[in-house]
Design a protein around this nucleic acid. Structure first.
Length: 780
DNA sequence: TTAGTTCGGGTTTTT
DNA sequence: CCCGAACTAA
């Protein structure tokens, strides 16, 4: 029991009180994972059977890491038997066991978001609805929210408020789409992500003996990241825990960032209603970050209204102030951050893997990547387009899925004519009509009713050949292991040949990706953990989990690389040095969150999460202009920067000058700084400014004191590659010069300020252009 | 039926 | 700017 000594009193209480309901409120960096792992280890040490422990985590990766840590604590291989995983993967597993109760085969497919959207798209088309009104993404969101609130298609159609909503928004057919969508999923023997939870609820509701079975089985239940659970998940947990009530939920309301996906903070706030005699444990000591970071984070989260009272504190040193830096553009931001990592790394000797760049949206990674590449800094991007989302991977997996479950409509449609075998749109439409009329799957149409399909003999033959091929794959997959079957199918279907033929760089990378997938399957097949009764796993076994894997679940490797990811993806991680980039209004907080207080608060929690990832150093960065839809936009610094107690910030540039005597706000009409604006001690410039709620920030101050920031930016630029070829050197572009622009035609330069020029074009009027991007040709 | 091209529309976050 | 979808030519 030595390990108990490694815990502080609060942690230890949470670990030792294993009986009865308890809630652990764990501040950022307070050793939440430690508590969970020690608690489970403790249970096992006290004699609990690992098979009776259910631990629900947010990601597969979290589950895997926790298992490893538990193994280290208790030794042996027992940890392997704990039921630990994400809600989705654990209940998919249970649903496969109990599938026949729900009239599903155990090898049902799992549709990912893309599959779901495609299906909805097809339905909307078949119903002859306007796809501008009924956007697949919107429709899926709506259905998803319904499912996560356990509202069936029938209940949806009868719900007065919901239908009224749909009516007024001009989408009266929503309920019908929902019904048809479910029907089609069922016909395909498929479930979408939300079904995995929804159907589990149905199972536990309609089959009391099954509920009892699992209530008895799971004597101890633990839920990580409880603040991110939705109603559907909440109810599953409540039902399963009802018998023993040995339920321990762990979370932090301040880190709830999945509200958009139906997560419900109320679950945390309401815990005491369901379990009045619960034990409450607050972990408030932060072991991760410096005092400055903890205090800054506290000051930010204090702006939120709804929260459980707690005070996170730390014994760690004060550390550096949090630096705030500004760049001219998104590209400059990339250069600055890379440069700063480069010099800081050289100075501290810390490993590259100790650095993270966090952003709000995936699209921001590009500018960062470019900067890092220029300095030859190794980096790794998490998320973005997940490996499993890539077209070539989805294609090959569709073959595997179809092999395991030929009724899978989305997989069928994806591969029936890939590689091209002359089965085109027209044929597919006829098949869809036939399938709908007979209320069967597309597969049934070509295997059972092919003769009645109104197509010519040639097409019929092609369809039959396709069916024969898939059947042969099924036979192959039955008798050999996953790796051999996977390779056989990839080859026989003509996929590998197709990809190999493409010698373009993208084609090459697609081929490599497929090889990587095959390698992964080989590894899976050789892994002893997956062998059952001395037999190597089958292809179907590989497919069970693959739909639920995401990029974040891929092996980390020991690569020493700078980490790039969205803030969402960074949850639960920590890094010595954290750069939070793109801190601009409308980006972070996102434009879409500004209308509602609750959503703005979620953005703020997101910022809190980002900041609390940092151990010793945090840098906040924003740019003054950024490309969006290929267009340059002016940006304002994020309100979150202002919301931090200034005592914890090192923010020279907000008090000092912008580079040169630049004046970005175009209200100022004076061409070039004749009066050289005396540090806009408000009053001068405020006239036209369309003030928002916030007071206007004091405009630029003396050029001289801006040295620090200025130097960084320019240095970044010079250290990067020499200016991209703009046709003519930017030196020629001076005030008064006549220039030509590809789009706007001829114009006259009114003003040049550093990177930026104001040019007048007779065609479109006055334009602000960044010299680096606008390929201006200087006319004699 | 397919391949190649233009066109229009879209970026929040993910199991 | 980048992608997919619709459109157009073989």
């Amino acid at each position: 029991m030595d390990y108990l000594k490694e815990l502080n009193p609060a942690q230890r209480a949470a670990v030792e009180n294993t009986e009865g309901p308890s809630m652990v409120i764990a501040g950022a960096g307070s050793g939440k994972t430690r508590v969970l792992t020690y608690r489970i280890a403790h249970l096992i040490n006290k004699g609990a059977d690992p098979f009776t422990i259910l631990a629900l985590t947010f990601t597969n990766k979290a589950a895997r890491e926790m298992k490893e840590r538990i193994s280290l604590l208790i030794g042996g291989t027992e940890a392997r038997n704990i039921w630990m995983g994400t809600f989705h993967s654990i209940f998919a597993r249970i649903l496969r066991i109990e599938s026949e109760k729900l009239n599903y085969p155990s090898n049902f497919s799992i549709y990912d978001t893309t599959d779901s959207k495609n299906l909805i798209k097809a339905i909307i088309k078949e119903m002859g609805l306007d796809d501008k009104m009924y956007k697949p993404g919107y429709v899926l969101n709506r259905i998803s929210s319904a499912k996560n609130s356990l509202i069936s298609a029938k209940a949806y159609a009868q719900h007065p408020e919901i239908t009224a909503d749909d009516e007024t928004s001009g989408r009266p057919k929503m309920a019908l789409i929902y019904r048809e969508y479910n029907l089609r999923l069922f016909k395909s023997s498929a479930m979408d992500f939300d079904d995995l939870l929804y159907k589990t609820n149905v199972l536990l509701r309609d089959f009391p003996e099954t509920l009892h079975k699992y209530q008895h089985k799971f004597k101890y239940i633990m839920v990580d990241e409880y603040q991110d659970t939705n109603f559907s998940q909440y109810l599953i947990v409540k039902k399963l825990a009802a018998l023993n009530e040995n339920l321990c939920v762990v979370g932090d309301d301040a880190q709830s960032i999945y509200g958009f996906r139906g997560a419900n903070i109320e679950n945390i706030l309401n815990f005491k209603k369901d379990y009045p005699d619960y034990g409450l444990y607050k972990l408030e000591q932060n072991y991760r970050s410096t005092k400055n970071i903890v205090a800054a984070a506290n000051s930010i989260i204090a702006k939120n209204r709804n929260q459980i009272e707690k005070k996170v504190w730390t014994d760690n040193g004060s550390g550096e102030l949090i630096r705030v830096v500004r760049s001219l553009s998104d590209n400059d931001e990339g250069l600055f951050v890379s440069n700063d990592i480069f010099s800081n790394q050289a100075e501290t000797g810390d490993a590259y893997r100790d650095y993270a760049i966090l952003y709000r949206t995936n699209s921001q990674s590009r500018a960062m990547e470019e900067g890092l590449r220029k300095l030859n800094i190794p980096y790794r991007i998490y998320g973005g387009q997940s490996f499993y989302q890539r077209k070539e991977i989805k294609d090959i997996l569709a073959y595997y899925r179809l092999t395991a479950n030929p009724h899978d409509e989305e997989s069928f449609k994806r591969v029936v004519n890939y590689p091209a075998r002359g089965i085109g749109k027209t044929t597919l439409e006829k098949m869809a009509v036939a399938a709908d009329a007979a209320k069967v799957s597309l597969w049934s149409v070509i295997t059972e009713n092919l003769d009645s399909l109104p197509v010519n003999a040639g097409t019929r033959k092609k369809l039959d050949e396709f069916a024969v091929m898939i059947k042969s794959f099924r036979a192959e997959a039955e008798k050999t292991d996953a790796a051999s079957a996977a390779e056989h199918i990839a080859k026989s279907a003509g996929l590998l040949r197709e990809l190999y033929a493409d010698k373009s760089p993208e084609g090459l990378s697609r081929y490599e990706n497929v090889q990587e997938l095959l390698g992964g399957i080989r590894e899976f097949a050789e892994n002893e953990e997956n062998t059952a009764d001395g037999e190597k796993p089958k292809l179907a076994d590989f497919l069970v989990d693959v739909a639920l894997l995401t990029d974040a679940d891929q092996e980390d490797g020991d690569d020493n690389k700078v980490n790039l990811m969205t803030i969402h993806a960074s949850k639960g991680l920590e890094f010595g040095h954290v750069y939070i980039v793109g801190l601009e209004e409308n980006l972070f907080p996102s434009q879409l969150s500004l209308s509602e207080r609750s959503e703005l608060e979620e953005e703020r929690r997101l910022f809190y999460v980002a900041l609390t990832r940092a151990e010793k150093r945090a840098v906040l960065s924003y740019a003054m202009s950024r490309y969006r839809y290929g267009q340059l936009n002016h940006c304002e610094p994020s309100r979150f920067i202002e919301e931090i107690e200034p005592d914890f910030l090192d923010m020279p540039e907000l008090r000092s000058a912008r580079p040169h005597r630049e004046r970005f706000d175009s209200f100022d009409e004076t061409p070039w700084g004749g009066g050289s604006s005396p540090f806009g001690k408000s009053g001068y410039t405020r006239n036209t400014s369309p003030q928002k709620s916030e007071p206007r920030r004091p405009t630029p101050a003396p050029p001289t004191s801006g040295g620090k920031q200025l130097k960084r930016v320019t240095q970044a630029r010079t250290q990067g590659a020499p200016d991209a070829d703009t046709g003519s050197s930017s030196a020629d572009i001076v005030t008064g010069a006549r220039v030509e622009h590809a789009k706007f035609g001829k114009g006259k330069v009114l003003n040049v300020e550093g990177e930026k020029a104001t040019v007048f074009f007779p065609s479109v009027g006055q334009k602000q252009l960044l010299l680096k991007f606008a390929k201006l040709k200087v006319l004699a």
